[in-house]
Design a protein around this nucleic acid. Sequence first.
DNA 1: CTGTTAGCGCTTTCAC
DNA 2: GTGAAAGCGCTAACAG
Lengths: 347, 347
Amino acid sequence: MEPENSHPRRPTIKDVADRAGVTKATVSKYLNRAHGYAMASSTKERIRAAIQELNFQPSPLARGLSRSTTSTIGLVVADIRSQFYPDLVASIQSAAEAAGYTLVLGSSGDDPDRELDIIRSMAHRQVDGVVLVAVRSESDHIEYLRRRGIQIVLASRDLPELVADTVVVDSFAGARTAVRHLRELGHRRLAHVTGEASVKPFADRRRGFEVETADLTGDGPGLPVEVTTSTLEGGRAATHRLLDVSDPPTGVFFASDTMALGGLMACADLGLRVPDDVSFVGFDNVAVGELPGIGLTTIDSDAVRVGEQATELLLKRMLAATGTEAEPVLVTRPAELVVRTSAAPPR
Amino acid sequence: MEPENSHPRRPTIKDVADRAGVTKATVSKYLNRAHGYAMASSTKERIRAAIQELNFQPSPLARGLSRSTTSTIGLVVADIRSQFYPDLVASIQSAAEAAGYTLVLGSSGDDPDRELDIIRSMAHRQVDGVVLVAVRSESDHIEYLRRRGIQIVLASRDLPELVADTVVVDSFAGARTAVRHLRELGHRRLAHVTGEASVKPFADRRRGFEVETADLTGDGPGLPVEVTTSTLEGGRAATHRLLDVSDPPTGVFFASDTMALGGLMACADLGLRVPDDVSFVGFDNVAVGELPGIGLTTIDSDAVRVGEQATELLLKRMLAATGTEAEPVLVTRPAELVVRTSAAPPR
DNA sequence: CTGTTAGCGCTTTCAC
DNA sequence: GTGAAAGCGCTAACAG
C-alpha cells in the first residue's frame, strides 16, 4: 500500500550540496561560474565528486524558471513536408544540438495565422531564440518576439525590410544565372513560374527573370509569367496553363524545384518530354533533382550552409543579448548553377 | 539611466489574483480544476475577466516545475534527411499540436549512441512522452524512459519484443505482396536488397521475400540478398553488386524506397533501363516515387496514418499514466501495393 | 571563499 | 468556497 512506490526521485542540487558538505549556493556557483574563478579547489573537488556519484544534472525547468532562459531554440518552417526543408532542418538541428540547445519544431503549413500562433506559443514557452522561415511578409511576429527579448534570425526567406538577422541565397543573381543558361542554350521563347508574390525571394527571382529577358517578347506585352502557390500541385497547374497552348515556350524557369517537379508531372500529363520538347530550370537544388529520370538543372540554394549560418548568427545574438542591440545583419550567399539534363538546346 | 527599461514583465497569476480580488490559490483552482466544480460563479466571473484583461497565460515553465509535466512530447527519428520522414514528422507534429503539446525534435543520424543521448536529454527536459523511430534494437532506452515515468510509443519500426505501444505497417505481408507482384509479372530471377539486419521491419521484409521465393533458386543455394545501409548510397552500391554480373536478376525487391532510388541511380550508372532491363519494387511509398521519370512501384507504409495513430496512442497513455500499466499494444496496419511503372514483365 | 535569504510562477495540502 | 503556507529545483544578491 505504498503509492510512493513510483519512480525514484532524481537527485537535486540539495543532495549534491549535502553530500559535498556545502550549500546549494556553492554548488550553484560551481555549476554556473564557469569553473575557474574563486573557489577552494578542495571544495571544487568534493562537489565534482558528489555530482559524479549522484549522476546529477540540473533541472532545465528549474533553471529556466529562475534564469528565464531555457537552452531551447524554436524552428518555424512553412511546411515540413516540402522537399526543401530536410537539409535545412537537419543542419539547424545539428548546429543547435552541438551548441547544447534543444530544438522545438513548428510547422505553419504555409498559413500566416498559424505561423503567428506558433511563434506566440514558442515565446510563451520561453525559447531563447527562433529560426524562422517566414510565411508572412509583415514583420509583426518579429516585433512580437523582439519585445519579449527573444532573438530571431530569418533563414532562407528575407523580408522586404531588414528587420532581423537574415541568411539567404542571392535569388536575384541566381535567377539571372538560370535564365542566362537557358538563353545560352538558344532559348528565346521563355516563361517563368513563380510562387506567392508576397515572398521576397520569389519576387527577386521574378525580377531576375524579367531583367534577363527584357529584350525578348512573347505573345502579349511581355513573356508569360505564371503566379501560383509554391507547391507541386501549383507548379503542375501553372505548367498546364503555360504549355497547353499553340506555340508554347521552349524554356521555363521555375522559382522553386518543388514547382518544377510539378512541371514535370504536367509534361507527363501532356505527353511532352523534357528536355526534348521543353527545357526546365528550377531553383533550390533539392535532393530528388539529382535522380536519374529527373535530372533537374537548377540553382543551388545551399540549404545546409544557410541553416548552419543562420544558427550561428542566432547563437551569437543570444550570447550578446545584453546591452545595445547591434544592427541586423544580412548574409547573402551565392547561388550557383547546377547543370543536369532538364535543359538542352531547343529543337 | 534606467536598466529597467527592458522588456515588460508578463502578468503572473499573482496579478490576476490581485485584480480579481482573490488569492493565487483560487486562480490556480480556476485554471486547473476543469472549470465546473465548486466555486462561486461571481468569483469565477471576476477571475475570467481579470485573465482576459491582463491577457494572462500561465507559464509552462513554472507549471512544469510544480507539476512535473511539461506539455511537451519528444520525437526522435533516425535521420530527418531521409525521404521517408516528412510525412511522418508532419503528421505527428500536427497531431501533437492539436492536442496542445509542443514537439521537441531529435535526429540521431542513425547512430544508436546518439539516439540514447537524445533520449536522455529529452527525459532530462521532462518531456511527457516520446515518439520513437528506433535505431537501436535493444530496449534499454525504452526502459530508461519507463523508469522515469515517461510514456513512449514506437512508430514505424517495431522491436523484437513488444516492450511498448507500437504502430507499424505489416512488413511481412507487404513484402510478400511485393514479391508476388513481381512473380505475377513473370519474374523468376529475383533478388532482394535489404537494410540493417537488426531493424525488425527489414528482417520481416526479408522473410517475406524468402517465403515467397522458397521454390526458386539462383546461382548459389538461394536467391541473392544484399544487405546494406538503408540509404540511397547503400542501395546504389548494393544494386551495383547485384546487377553488374553476367545473367543478373530481372526483378529486385528493395526493403525501402530510399534504397530503390539508389538502385535507380545504379542503373543509370550501368546503362540499364527500368523496367526494360530490370524491374524494381520498393517499400514505403515516398512522395518522389510518384514523379514521372521515377514511377516507383512500391508498398505503401502509410506514414501519415502511422504518425497519427502513434500520437493518439501516446496521448492516451499519457492521460492514463496513473495506476496500473496497461499491456503494450501493437497496431499493425495493412501495407498495400501501389503499382506504377518500375515493374513490368521481363523480356 | 562560502553561507543566508529571497525569490522565479505555479500547484497543492490543509485550515477556516 | 477561499485563503495561508509550503514547496517544486535552481539562481542571485548580499553578507560575512
